[in-house]
Amino acid sequence: MAASVGFEAETEFCIAVNSDNDLVAARRKGRVLAEQIGFSGSEATLVATAISELARNIVSYAGRGEILLSTVGNGSSIGITVIARDQGPGIADTRRVLEHGYSTSGGLGLGLPGVRRIMDEFDIISAPGLGTTITVTKWKRR
């Protein structure tokens, strides 16, 4: 029981995303954090890749926004939550964005279905004119 104590304390990082230059810093931070809490190399790569896609989404559609990274614990497991937040134009129908047949050729940063696949939890809140907040979590495999 003692093993899970101490994970409640969250490490938080906030990375401003204003141009594609910031993507590199954001995903590097994500990888470091993932490795710090014991993610395997491929899990850390998945987290870094998801951050990259989310940050690019911000740059492409909103111009600017931020990426928040934090560690999360639910008692028996530990993970990383990434929040991508912007005040951009927002999305009218979030479901369609996720349904959209993923294609690498289709526009910039339409990687949301891909992000949902590589992360364990995915949540999107958006409305026209109100910006977009996407929250994703990856749990460490035991």
Binding site: S42, T45, L46, S103, T104, G114, R117
Partner: peptide, 15 residues
């Protein structure tokens, strides 16, 4: 291409 990177690419659905 690194093994982890290849793994992430296919999971992301990159053709």
């Amino acid at each position: 291409i690194q093994p982890e990177v290849a793994f992430a690419m296919v999971q992301l659905g990159i053709a």
